[in-house]
Design a protein around this nucleic acid. Structure first.
Lengths: 225, 225
DNA sequence: ACCCGGCTTACAGAAGACTTACAGCTGACG
DNA sequence: CGTCAGCTGTAAGTCTTCTGTAAGCCGGGT
């Protein structure tokens, strides 16, 4: 679950993104509008948290630029209370959420989860593939009815595969989904991660498996489901 | 999928083109504007990545020279952040993309893919010929509805034939499409490659086939489609 | 019947993916 | 505050698959 966090106040950015990370999100943090537009164009985010008081660009024009390219990405707008009225009015209220500063991490988290849980959002669905069930709201996994012990990476990876069941995932796609851009892994890291996940799936008698397409990527069985 | 990469910084050029190659692109790397214009005239590239800080020529005039000869080739411009405004302004914004230095390989890749996916671009289309489908976005192939296991070369070759379905491809054309200019194969290599592809197509019951024109080249059936 | 161009096969080097082992880090618990 | 267990990325070694080369074969055209 990958987020883009746009906030020019370094200190606040640090703290908040630490909290988000502690809650299992991959967070890319940028400090100006230009970088934000850039990153949003280059990567797929599950949600974007946007502070409106940016130094270089009018916040809403950042939003518009990004929406133009990726209309489906949900936004959470951060703004000071007094600036609230006039700015928020400009938004398509139905598609996004906002939060007034100062806010605490728990509230932001709740908002993010809420936004992700919306129809079409990334949360709140139970994914199924063969005899595997993945509950995306509490992030628990069952294989053949018994709960599976997966580590964070393994869960993230499995979730990714299950969301894109049957579709081919390139190494890049996987890397982008699992790692923020300030934690670049060796190519091998992904091999190791899939290996570990594969073994757990096999050990627990999963009826689907991850297949390799040499030179292209990986995909999850789609037939048994 | 062949790229021309114009970058005078040797070190950067090395690293970046290695990443591109690792992602399945054929990369020709040149270090000055003159070579760039030259190569772009001599070969067909799917995209050109152009650094604006070249020693011998003004970057944009390189762009213009090439565009004059091959107007359809998409460009991705690399530039330092401070030089961005005034230079990019000169571009026909709709037809090209740009990326600010420093960038990481993943971002460049994303840009390239985005550019290739544009209408008229090389990616994002599903090619069809007889009972063969070639999904150019994830580079997967199905024959008669079942996924085909093809190696990288085989896929590249098939893609080439399917893009030019019914047209005749000389050995040279094939060689230029599949091999960068620093990896020259024996003439025979292409024979072997087509042979292997032919066998897989036949084994999987493809309804189209690759035909030989002695002394001229090869072509893919066009009737059954 | 001969020759040239393409086809086929076998093989070896290279590239890619899989495994295993290890070490740093984190987080829980005493 | 220290210790311990588990997670995760790195690195190195192994195994598999791919791919170009070389060498011989086949077949059509002259």
């Amino acid at each position: 679950m990958r987020l883009l966090y746009v906030e020019d106040n370094e200190r606040l950015a640090q703290n908040t993104s630490a909290s988000l990370q502690a809650n299992g999100f991959i967070v890319d943090c940028v400090h100006c509008g230009e970088d934000a537009v850039h990153s949003a164009r280059s990567y797929d985010y599950d949600a974007i948290i946007l502070d409106l008081g940016l130094p270089d660009m009018e916040g809403l024009s950042v939003l518009r630029s990004i929406k133009a390219a990726k209309p489906e990405v949900p936004f959470i707008i951060c703004t000071a209370r007094d600036a609230l009225e006039d700015r928020i009015k400009g938004l398509d209220a139905g598609s996004d959420d906002y939060i007034v500063k100062p806010f605490d991490a728990a509230e932001l988290l709740a908002r993010i989860r809420a936004v992700l849980r919306r129809p079409g959002g990334a949360l709140g669905v139970t994914l199924m593939a063969g005899n595997i069930t993945f509950d995306t709201s509490c992030r628990s996994v069952e294989i053949g009815g018994t709960p599976a012990h997966l580590s964070r990476r393994e869960r993230d990876l499995l979730e990714l595969f299950m969301r894109r069941k049957g579709r081919i995932l390139s190494r890049d796609t996987i890397e982008n989904a699992l790692y923020g851009f300030d934690e670049p892994p060796t190519p091998n890291a992904i091999e190791v991660a899939t290996h570990r996940l594969r073994r757990k799936l096999a050990d627990m008698g999963a009826s689907v498996a991850i297949h390799t397409l040499r030179g292209i990527g990986y995909f999850l069985d789609d037939d048994g489901a």
